[in-house]
Write a protein that binds this DNA or RNA. Sequence first.
DNA 1: TTTCTGACTTTTTTAGTTTCAAAGTCAAAA
DNA 2: TTTTGACTTTGAAACTAAAAAAGTCAGAAA
Lengths: 202, 202
Amino acid sequence: MLTENRDETRERIIDAALNRFTYYGASKTTMNEIAEDLHCSKASLYYYFPDKQALHVAVLEKAGETYFHDLQEKADQAVTARQAFMELIATRHEFARRFCRLELFKVLKDKHLVRIANKAFEAARDREIGIITNIIEKGVDRGEMVSADPAKVAALYMHAMIGLRLSLVSKDLSEEISDEEFERVREWQVQLADIFINSLKK
Amino acid sequence: MLTENRDETRERIIDAALNRFTYYGASKTTMNEIAEDLHCSKASLYYYFPDKQALHVAVLEKAGETYFHDLQEKADQAVTARQAFMELIATRHEFARRFCRLELFKVLKDKHLVRIANKAFEAARDREIGIITNIIEKGVDRGEMVSADPAKVAALYMHAMIGLRLSLVSKDLSEEISDEEFERVREWQVQLADIFINSLKK
DNA sequence: TTTCTGACTTTTTTAGTTTCAAAGTCAAAA
DNA sequence: TTTTGACTTTGAAACTAAAAAAGTCAGAAA
């Protein structure tokens, strides 16, 4: 496929798939379409990935990496805990809007992948909870807040924030969310963050 | 059907349906089964209710009324805001466990009923938010807490609490929840309530 | 007149089948 | 080692038939 090494070709395939998936959804794009985009045969794709699911997972991993990179960067730059919380909400929404068609939930519910996918999903959630824990700990160090168990509060906040989205717009995870709904969820999440921050104040 | 007046017969039918629905689920019980339980013909049922959905809705209304009655009673009896929050959580869970087979969501998603059902559902939610608002206002009156906008905080708490259930056990609303999952959700909801209560303290 | 029912029709659900597009394979070529 | 055209297999959607449940109605009973 006109490229130096195996890993580079894999990356090119992942990028092509990510593009298709982002615009048309993972289940609506065929392996043939991805191959056409890359000017190669479908069989070549199968030389680099055992099946479509493996490619889908690779795409999700790539999107996840950029997400966590952004998240960590914003958390490091913030000078107050509140600012960090607000950046977290903003980054989450950008990601959700950009990659809502990646069909994360679908991989998660696939009977062949549930075990691995759930593990990965929990790991990602824990990683995000870790970042929130860090924000709180930093806040405590700065004397902005007090907390006996930052990890516990972080986990609670994470679930409540995600839950707010689920409760506020009670659609199936597969359905698309409108701009108004996105904005509404964002506003409520900001208020929830303020409740938590206030609760953590001395 | 061996009864004095129309309303009384309606009540008997609703009770019979409620029993069947509670144990076997609304969609799994037939009008014939309800008629058999009441030793009457199916046609009689249709004399009192235009269709099965109308009966289903009547059953849900009845369950809802007992729920709000319990809720209000507990809220009135509580002597502290925290106690009221805890009773609210307990009452919610009792209700959810007892009536989880009533298929509330199904009525809510029916294409012919969406408009009315959503209105009713929102009304019920607002009524519950109203009760929470009252709890907070009472807390403010007692000097336990401070809040500029109790209704706003109540709505936020309500959605976050419901969301916690949705986030923590990511099943379809139709699937059954195990005892362990119920207990886990309850514990997290208690902690969320404490965060809110703490945030509202002077 | 109001309530009730047996016998009926209509609608919905389910289970089985076909069909077709997309997934996936492989022997051979580059 | 990488790529491919030609191939097979698979799974999801589109039909279909049969069964079950919803819903109707003319007339009986109270």
